[in-house]
Design a protein around this nucleic acid. Structure first.
Lengths: 244, 244
DNA sequence: GTTTAACCGATTGTCGACAATATTAGGGAT
DNA sequence: ATCCCTAATATTGTCGACAATCGGTTAAAC
């Protein structure tokens, strides 16, 4: 009915953390989720103009739904909406990416303390399986797959912690800085180290100690921040697309 | 042009932390800000239905603008939007209020570390003046005025810290839990203690030590959380409005 | 008396048309 | 060739009308 022939059947990527966890759909939810996916998965570049009519045709929705979706994405920080001038994919600056990561760090630290108190044997089994899969991807030389599993791993911890507010914020922050995450994969040797850090996190959780878990997570995230800083420095000297 | 005669000229309350700091107005911004103010300042009760046509008449806007505003407020968490069933003021549960406060605590701790590194002599003067005014309000026996200044005080710190991401999140969180804040004022002796804590925060900032500042802020916020917990317990035994 | 079914008013969802505004293109003037 | 002004086009903003849906009410059946 709504999946028109021209709409390119957006696949639900693991990169989308589903900001509204419960099943209740809300106003213009379909167009919103589709657009969100297109942006987060990088189909639109930053600063690219988002013309309502085009999007409506592309997603097989009314201009109405597109409008609602854009407002929502603007509020979420993924899109910049200027009066009478339409919408663009919001470009997050280096500085903002670091700010975001900084907030992410403290939220993840807080959330893992909750997780450590609530984690069950089944949860630990799932987490270990996640890490095993990551190890596989690593040995396959599949850094993109590793990154997906990485996201899944962290989301699993959010679920265990059962802290809706923090999870929501984290999901939003992550979607805003996703573009930077991709670059961080490229750092040589980083994934191996990352894997060890994840293993340490699982073991800390297994001990059910909030302090140890937070320490392990802090250790991990401080490395992530460093890698992000590295990625930014690299990009600054070898910009991908020059200012015109 | 658009400010029709029937619109009741919403006053800009200090309770509104202006989620978009920069002057650039966005789509349906006016109706959004007005509605937001009406909700945050408590003119609509939780769970109250928000009928588009009524709001349009009330705010002197088109149904269109109202719709956009509602979508925005839904994304922000102040309004719950159900398909074909309209919008209601979202009721935040006790548990959620505590979650929000928990996140607020760690964000404020993080932000004050930044503030401690950046604070200027002029900033300290402003902060001290804020505290002086709070002392005045306290001696006047004006707890509501105190509460407003309290919000202003914290916002001043956000400004000093210059951390846009954290400020934005804090503003959103605060607006969601505003209803609970009002109750916390009622605790006997709390305001006096709160004032002393604020003084301690200013002095810590004056020392420009992130650690001391964070400690002072933590001391303050742990009290705030305790007071919130107290307010929730009181309310649970003396509910203001009974479930019908 | 209770339950079910059909109806009606109220409200939201969607579409199309047009007005308002911005962006681009074209055509002199210097 | 460059700049500036004007016209044409593209895009967003707003309104009104109507379809779809919901909640409650009345009426009918058992």
């Amino acid at each position: 009915m709504k999946a028109s022939a021209s709409a390119p059947a957006v696949r639900r990527s693991t990169v989308n953390p589903a900001p509204k966890p419960d099943g209740a759909a809300e106003r213009g939810a379909d167009a919103y989720l589709q657009l969100r996916n297109e942006i987060v998965s990088g189909r639109f570049h930053p600063n690219e103009r988002l013309v309502e009519a085009d999007l409506a045709r592309l997603l097989g929705a009314g201009r109405n739904a597109i409008r609602a979706a854009l407002v929502r994405l603007d509020q979420e920080g993924l899109v910049a909406l200027e009066p009478n001038r339409g919408a663009r994919v919001r470009l997050v600056s280096d500085r903002e990416a670091l700010e975001i990561e900084e907030v992410r760090v403290i939220l993840e630290q807080m959330i893992i303390r909750h997780a450590a108190r609530r984690v069950t044997a089944a949860d630990l089994r799932d987490l270990r399986r996640s890490v095993d899969q990551m190890r596989e991807r690593l040995s396959e030389g599949n850094p993109l797959g590793y990154s997906e599993l990485n996201a899944e791993f962290h989301q699993r911890i959010w679920t265990i912690a059962d802290h809706g507010t923090a999870s929501r914020l984290l999901a939003n922050l992550k979607s805003q800085s996703i573009r930077f995450q991709y670059r961080t994969i490229l750092r040589p040797g980083r994934t191996e180290q990352s894997l060890r850090e994840h293993e340490a996190i699982v073991e800390a959780l297994a001990s059910r100690s909030p302090d140890e878990s937070e320490a392990a997570m802090r250790q991990h995230l401080s490395q992530v921040v460093q890698t992000l800083q590295w990625a930014i420095d690299v990009q600054r000297h070898q910009p991908i697309w020059l200012p015109r």
